[in-house]
């Protein structure tokens, strides 16, 4: 299935809280499939969050980040209707991105 990124961004009290759930297997390379073969590592390496185009968080992830990663963080500023961008690139060079509006 296609890549998906779910984003909730909420502005309150002068700052914006962002929660994101990213659909990705985050295969560590240490897990075997049903046939007993190791599933090769496949994980997001870099994820970037922007607010109106400006970077507000850069995450570097290794294979130890859970499948379908979740992240929650906050930054100063942001108001309802502003745009939050999320993009990632994984160790196979696959990418995905999305934007969401601050609620």
């Amino acid at each position: 299935m296609a890549h998906q990124i779910l984003v909730h961004a909420m502005a309150a009290g002068g700052s914006t809280t962002v929660e994101a759930l990213v659909k990705h297997p985050m295969d560590s390379g240490f897990v075997k499939d049903k046939a007993g073969k190791l599933i090769p590592p496949h994980y997001i390496e870099v994820i970037e969050f922007t607010h109106n185009g400006k970077v507000v968080l850069t995450g570097f992830w290794g294979p130890a980040v859970s499948k379908n990663p979740f992240i929650k963080f906050a930054f100063k500023g942001g108001k309802s209707g502003d745009s939050i961008g999320v993009s990632w690139v994984d160790n196979k060079g696959e990418t995905a991105s999305t934007t969401a509006k601050i609620m």
Binding site: V56, L57, I71, K72, A74, F75, K76
Partner: peptide, 15 residues
């Protein structure tokens, strides 16, 4: 995991 925190972003991160 590691995070780059620009000025204005909170240090509180959950994952």
């Amino acid at each position: 995991a590691a995070y780059k925190i620009p000025a204005g972003t909170s240090t509180a991160i959950s994952s």
